[in-house]
Design a protein around this nucleic acid. Structure first.
Lengths: 294, 294
DNA sequence: TTGAAAGCGCTAACAC
DNA sequence: GTGTTAGCGCTTTCAA
């Protein structure tokens, strides 16, 4: 009995015919000895780590709406990946100065990078000379190599009625690191600047809301929505539930929901890219559509 | 120039005196070639993976208060660990049937397991024959080997006034997998069963609150607190902020806060155990004290 | 059907 | 001060 035979049995190697008896002996012994493979060693020879990274740009002293906005996303994505046999490395980046060595050091099989500043993108892409599947989340960056998964904000605003009844409602959006995303959202509504607010802190939001209390409001991110609901009539609020946590909102709020579609789509795309890195979808932007609104 | 010399330079090996010139040559070449060490290979020889696991027991269809209650904890803990040079593997367990092979497969250097059912504890401990530092979070399990980090609920209830004015207030607690923790919280207040409610879903909570609307209330977990605030006067509510997200609550709510102390203490303990696994603190239960209340 | 052996990238003991 | 080498645990080619 040699190491090779054992490896064959334990991995169910295809074109090796092994008599049931040997098979059993190996399996029994493995059970007896409480054997578990060492994935570091396997990684080394297979040149695949079985690790997927979720790298999230964060800043110091983030408000709770930022702290929690990716909790559902991470949660769901981790489960999907785990179910497929991958292990998930969670890593937060300093948005101003992201350290990305983890990608090559750990030989990650795939990477999600969330909320990327365009200024730092060259840094990121330089870590991908090797061709690891990379998916950007909540980021708009003109680059033909990498995929980006974002919500379809244009659709969301259409559903919310913001676009049809222009300047009848105000809009509050989440504060992203990626300035291009903010710009794109802004121009997709074509709203009057005085009716547009990017969340900074509660006081400023409060002041903004005071000035527009009589209008209806559209808010991105239900945690910000829950703050807004403290200051305005919930019935006049529509929240685009980008944090997949609609239940946090008062019942009267109108919701546009995604039911974790962003994690699903990001996951599906990643699996496709890992299977066949050369043949991903042609279009590099995936726009996640709302699943329902009420 | 040999591999060894290179390794010495790159790792700043202590008792190897290397002339600055050689040092520079190596460092330059490394930069030129964009060298990054392969941590899988290093793990293999060092017998240390540099990975810390955060394993969280989850169930299907968890309410948002459960989904988000560990977001701040994970967030903070990940940053602390990253700053110390560890990488974090996030892994959710099926609370009913946790698969723990990841611990030995990845040779995790340390593991946090969150909200453990006692019934499954033998399973967990069997994965630690090797002596990996293991810290249980939000779990009470009589076992002399492993550390447990929990909030000091007794102190929290004392601060809230629940214990002094017995049966003047009702109490709503979070739903944990660990039944012993629930039991311990319950008996630490010694409250009348009719005034004690464990969160199951919003409807049941609503009914419970209706019956006690005139009393003051003490609630564990600010997400549950934010639901409660929909049904009762916020000024009559004290929330024990176990999710480290006090800002989500209406201003009128009284808060008992921890400022991420649970992650800090869990982290400190882990570092101590990794340094010297034999000489951890004598007492196996760490009770996290409130940092302030208002 | 099985086994011997090379080698993944790295570290550390030891010889020079 | 530097190089040689064994070996971490595993997979896989090739020969028997």
């Amino acid at each position: 009995m040699s190491v090779a035979t054992v490896s064959y049995v334990l991995n169910n190697v295809a074109n090796q015919t092994i008599p049931d008896e040997t098979k059993c002996r190996v399996l029994d012994a493995a059970k007896q000895l409480n054997y578990v493979p060492n994935l570091a060693a396997r990684s080394l020879v297979k040149q695949k780590s079985g690790l997927i990274g979720i790298l999230i740009n964060r800043s110091e002293n983030e408000g709770f709406w930022k702290q929690h906005r990716y909790a559902s996303f991470i949660n769901r994505l981790e489960r999907l990946l785990t179910d497929r046999g991958y292990h998930v490395v969670l890593f937060s980046l300093d948005a101003a100065n992201p350290k990305l060595d983890i990608i090559s050091e750990r030989k990650l099989d795939g990477v999600f990078v969330v909320d990327v500043k365009r200024e730092n993108f060259h840094l990121i892409s330089s870590h991908f000379s090797v061709g690891v599947p990379l998916i950007l989340i909540d980021s708009i960056i003109e680059d033909s190599l990498f995929y980006k998964v974002n919500y379809d904000y244009e659709e969301a605003f259409a559903l919310s009625g913001a676009s049809s009844q222009l300047n009848q409602s105000y809009v509050v959006i989440d504060s992203f690191n990626n300035a291009e995303l903010i710009q794109s959202i802004r121009s997709s509504i074509g709203i009057d600047p005085s009716l547009f607010h990017m969340m900074e802190d509660e006081e400023r939001l409060e002041r903004f809301l005071e000035q527009n209390a009589e209008k209806t409001g559209i808010v991105l991110n239900e945690f910000i929505g829950s703050i807004a609901a403290k200051y305005v009539n919930a019935a006049k609020l529509t929240v685009i539930c980008t944090a997949d946590c609609p239940d946090i909102l008062p019942a009267a709020v109108t919701r546009i929901q995604y039911d974790n579609r962003k994690s699903e789509e990001a996951f599906q795309l990643m699996m496709k890219l890992i299977d066949d890195p050369m043949n991903g979808p042609e279009h590099k932007y995936i726009d996640v559509k709302a699943s329902h609104s009420e």
